[in-house]
Design a protein around this nucleic acid. Structure first.
Lengths: 256, 256
DNA sequence: TGTTTGGTTCCATATAATGAAACCTAGTTT
DNA sequence: AAACTAGGTTTCATTATATGGAACCAAACA
């Protein structure tokens, strides 16, 4: 039962696989990317469909997330995500700064974008709500890493592959440490085109009432629109929004 | 594996139980409401925490939905829920009619509210997004039931307990059939204080391109604010909104 | 008509799950 | 201080469930 080779772990893996397709998916497509034998995968799919976690379209022979998962989703969203509480603050910040605003949480060393707001159609980042990103080369990721307890941070850094997405990306934990120290000092993190070429951001951690960091919020833009120095001038507004969100968060509500 | 006594079914039952608490919950509280022996429940919780579907707060010894579920949630929400597509239409309708607007889908005979908008703070119904309601005594439920294929409708009706929530509630499928016929004729359903005393609604099914019904939308209010006749005058607007949503829905995207 | 493809089922065997009982720690009561 | 209680955690002989290669099925294709 425990671990990825338990029955529960395997079922969740299948669930993830269907969800990751982002569209209805046929059995053979799932089989191609699966580590399970045909009969085993088939049985897991039948089981998840029977439980309502997946839905099966008999006409097109495709699988997709089911309404029981949608229902669970909602409960999870409301009680384990910053997004419901932070939404008005994220909206307000986006209105003021006229750039993309991201809200993220961390999960086993990876950043999960849980909300994103922008008020213009001119520009966008790759960040999509619900998506996972590395923590070592995103503003929100570094803002969170800097304020994690030492041991948790070490574990989180171990899980990073330090893929050099751009010439500016950190290549190792050792390279990153001095910057994390600086982030702790200033309470502000920057993404200097480290994750996406041409994309910069400024981020602040969300830390309720001297407790541990629960997430981070960032303002992201392109180098063609703004400079890093211009982003710096938005730091006070950003910190204030992060504080407001932190004030509303009840720390016991969130996982980590 | 198949059914509620398979390992997967049991794990999902535990997941549901934690999610249904809507707040961090301790092991003993879960044990109280569980059909599993102590060791079995404990092991399921450890397994789900290990997989990230649940999170465990060691300080308070409480469990809650985990970020992997939030992530899965998002995928499910975006690809298996009407809400993302329907949102602008629901907003627009709420703006026009100045009452609560509900969006719902059906799942094994039960209605799931997937979105809800209102532009006044004066009153509210019990409908909460993500919640499940019976189909036989809600406007959206009856709107969907009426347009389901015959066999699916029979199955769905069998799953209803026909609890008489108010004196106006249908007590049996037999009692409901003539009204479903009428709903099919008119393309409009009413909740005449059948689910909640004092609450009435008008609902229309969402049926893309001669295909099967995928959901329904309703306008709900209280008898102290509006009469049923007044709600009737909103039918054309409601039908139009339902048609607009249906036009955007790609029928293969949604589960049944 | 024979072959291919994708999906579905079978069942002897293997593996994981089971759950009563015991254990552990912290707090409470005597 | 000792005994007791409560909530959480672990053990392991036994049982139940999962496994997965092979076979089967239906539809489409050559």
């Amino acid at each position: 039962m425990l671990g990825r080779n338990g029955t529960v772990g395997k079922a969740i893996e299948v669930l993830d696989q269907v969800a990751d397709h982002g569209r209805p998916v046929r059995f053979s497509e799932l089989l191609d990317g699966s580590r399970f034998p045909k009969a085993t995968l088939y049985r897991f799919l039948q089981s998840l469909v029977g439980q309502g976690m997946l839905a099966y379209d008999a006409e097109r022979q495709t699988y997709m997330p089911g309404l029981r998962l949608v229902r669970l989703a909602h409960a999870a969203w409301q009680h384990s995500s910053l997004a419901p509480i932070a939404r008005p603050h994220v909206d307000a910040l986006a209105e003021v700064v006229r750039e993309a605003v991201h809200l993220a949480q961390i999960d086993h060393g990876h950043v999960i974008f849980v909300d994103k707001r922008k008020k213009t159609n001119m520009f966008d980042t790759l960040a999509q709500t619900g998506l996972v990103a590395p923590s070592y080369c995103t503003g929100v990721g570094k803002a969170i890493l800097a304020f994690l307890p030492e041991e948790t941070r070490s574990e989180a850094l171990k899980m990073q592959a330090f893929v050099p997405y751009t010439p500016h990306t950190h290549r190792s934990p050792r390279s990153l440490w001095p910057e994390l120290d600086q982030i702790r000092d200033e309470g502000i993190a920057f993404d200097r085109e480290e994750h996406e070429q041409g994309i910069i951001s400024v981020a602040a951690p969300i830390i309720p009432d001297q407790r541990r960091v629960v997430g981070a919020i960032s303002i992201a833009t392109s180098t063609s629109r703004r400079s890093l120095d211009e982003l710096k001038t938005l730091s006070p507004t950003l910190r204030e929004t992060a504080s407001r969100i932190a004030a509303e968060v009840q720390p016991w509500q969130f996982p980590n």
